[in-house]
């Protein structure tokens, strides 16, 4: 038993050891930009993939021309009645600008990205309109869900078999 436990601990240690060199993170690579004027501030919106497709994640960067120091605000992405808003936070892998890391937009359509910014020059609001998001790549979601819930149906089948074989109370 003791040898087995040591073996297990050794395996876990090996896993932890191998994790360190594998934990390198890709830099943010902006391939397309748009300009948004929000009152006294001009914001460059960067995208790490272009064009955008629904459900396909990418890095967004929001860079005011004179930097983010002394400024705060929020960003709201909307499509029809769908809205997702949050404070303007520094991008985890590009700390000199605001951004959203590996984020996707859930549906195709013409999205609006709205910025509300407060800073030394006062407050400003601006929008990037008609941000085109194309149809999602890959198989239809119904098929993806059908494939992914096979274990659930397998479990239900097991329960049905067990149910029929265990009618006698014990």
């Amino acid at each position: 038993m003791r040898r087995s436990v040591w073996g297990l601990l050794a395996a876990i240690g090996l896993l932890l050891g191998l994790a360190a060199p594998a934990s390198a993170y890709e830099p943010v690579n902006v391939v397309h930009t748009e300009k948004v004027v929000a009152g006294p501030y001009t914001v460059t919106v960067g995208f790490s993939t272009w064009p955008l497709k629904a459900m396909q994640s990418l890095d967004f960067t929001f860079a005011p021309d004179d930097g983010i120091a002394g400024k705060q605000g929020n960003v709201i992405m909307s499509l029809g009645r769908q809205r997702q808003g949050e404070p303007l936070a520094r991008h985890p892998r590009k700390r000199d600008v605001w951004g959203l890391d590996v984020r996707s937009l859930p549906e195709p359509g013409d999205w609006t990205v709205r910025f509300n910014i407060e800073g030394p020059k006062g407050t400003g609001t601006g929008e990037l309109r008609d941000l085109k998001v194309m149809e999602q790549p890959g198989p239809p979601m119904g098929l993806s869900w059908a494939i992914s819930t096979i274990p659930l149906f397998g479990l239900i089948a097991l329960i049905v078999i067990a149910w029929r074989r265990t009618r006698r109370p014990v």
Binding site: Q56, S57, L58, V102, S104, S144, W145, S148, P151
Partner: peptide, 15 residues
């Protein structure tokens, strides 16, 4: 295909 989205309820994650 979709990138390393941190979405817990994607179909493969649920699988």
């Amino acid at each position: 295909l979709y990138g390393f989205d941190a979405v817990i309820d994607s179909p493969p994650h649920i699988g």
